[in-house]
Structure formats: C-alpha cells, structure tokens
Design a binder for these strands. Structure first.
Lengths: 117, 117
DNA sequence: TGACAATGGGCACCTAGGTGCCCATAATCT
DNA sequence: AGATTATGGGCACCTAGGTGCCCATTGTCA
C-alpha cells in the first residue's frame, strides 16, 4: 500500500525496535537472518513469508538512510563453515525515525482525526 | 569407501576435468554452484544429491592441494543481488593429478591386474 | 582369506541473501 | 466521493555455501 512519506510501516518499526534492543545489549550490528529467526519465534510460523519481505524492507531502509550496511569479511575465521552475512547498523536517522514513530503512537493528539475534547 | 592414496575418485575427476575445460575457454576461476549446475544438466536430476557431496569434495581437494580458493569481494558491484561466492582455481598439483589419472585410465598396462599377453 | 578401519556418497537439512509477479490498500488528485 | 496511482505484502522460487549422520565399499593388515 501507498504510504505517507516519512511514516514507518509495521515491519520497519519491528526492525528498528529489534535493532535498538540489540544495541542496548551491546550488539551494534545485526544481520537479516538473525532478525528473521527472531520474527519467526515471535509470530510462530510465518518465517517463509518473512524472509523475502524482510530483505526487501532492509534494502529499502538502507536506501532511505535508516540503516547502513557492510558485508562481513568472508575470509575472516569466524565465517568458516557458513555463507558471509550482510551486517546492518542503525543510523542516527533510523533512531530518530523510530523515536518519532513511538512518540506519534503514544500521543493521541498526534493521531489522525484527533479533536480536542 | 576407502581409497588408495594418490588416486582420484570419479567426482574429483569430473571437477578437474570441468576446471580444465573452463580454463581452455579462458576462465581461470569457477565456483561450486556453477559446477553443480553443469553436473545437473549432465546427469539430469541428481542435483540435490550433488550439492552437499560437491562442496565436500571441493573442500577435500583444497585441503589436499589440488585446488586453491578465495572468496570474491562481497562489496564488488558484480556481486549485487546475490550471495558472494567462493572461487576455486586449479593448482599445478591438481592439473598433474588429473593428467596422471587420465594416463592411467588410458594405458592398460597401468591398470590393476594387468598381465602381458 | 577374513576381520578391521578409513573414507566418501546419499540424504536431509541448515545458513544466508535475494528477485519477480500479482494484488490489496492507502494516499492523492479531480 | 470517486478515480487514479504508488507502494509494499504474500508467495514462490532462485542463488550460494555448507554440516551431520549413516552406511556401503575398499584397502590394508593379521
């Protein structure tokens, strides 16, 4: 669905929120598969669904500056035995956008159609 | 199955032979998925089988010095839109081993159990 | 020659990142 | 309010690299 510029859709809020949670645990970077697993455990079985959608969302969010990414070095020893990952990191813009979205969600006067009593 | 040291098994011969064919076409490097596809088109449908077996074979062959490998740079523009690959290259040892194996296969006097007429 | 041990194949499954198409919905325009 | 259009979700599928277990076969040794 079309969206008003500057607003976040649920999957984006979920991603930003997960990223902030990880950040608070000291993990500055995360990768798509990791998020996919968390989303899987969260809403049980819609994992197949999530994968494609998720990577598209991550890509979009990087395009729009909410996230930045780098590939991990495939020749690094801790990549042994699995394919290399693309590591994402929350940008200042991303953090701000998330905070704004929660603010809007919390303050009724910012909701569409609000009227003073 | 156990094997006599220094001999090649069929999948290894297939890999070396494919590598040499590519080399003759000017392609010095190849990756596992590429071989997998060729093997797939060759013997129709045993692809699922091949994949696991193939990567194990490639790994073994690198360990024993018949092949060398490097990861392609994931941030290179031509990796856009797909996971990075591990690129293999035939070593001098690999080439020699292949030639030796075809020599043995061609010359009956080198076959086990050979007796002069 | 028969027992033993090493090796690799088959198979199922995992890890990781992605595209393309169709369609529902929402934002916008008239 | 109704028509139009942009956007993203659902789904199926592709690309790429890998592991673990079991079992059949083979080389070697007694």
């Amino acid at each position: 669905m079309r969206r008003k510029p500057g607003t976040l859709i649920p999957i984006e809020i979920a991603i930003l929120s997960a990223a902030l949670a990880l950040l608070n645990r000291g993990e500055e970077e995360f990768h798509g598969y990791q998020l996919a697993r968390e989303i899987k455990t969260a809403n049980s079985d819609r994992f197949r669904m999530a994968a494609g959608t998720l990577y598209k969302a991550l890509n979009r969010m990087e395009q729009s500056g909410l996230l930045s990414s780098r590939w991990e070095d495939p020749s690094s020893p801790d990549v042994e035995g699995r394919p290399p990952r693309r590591l994402y990191r929350l940008t200042a813009d991303g953090e701000a956008a998330y905070k704004e979205s929660t603010r809007v969600a919390t303050d009724p006067s910012l909701q569409a159609g609000w009227q003073p009593l």
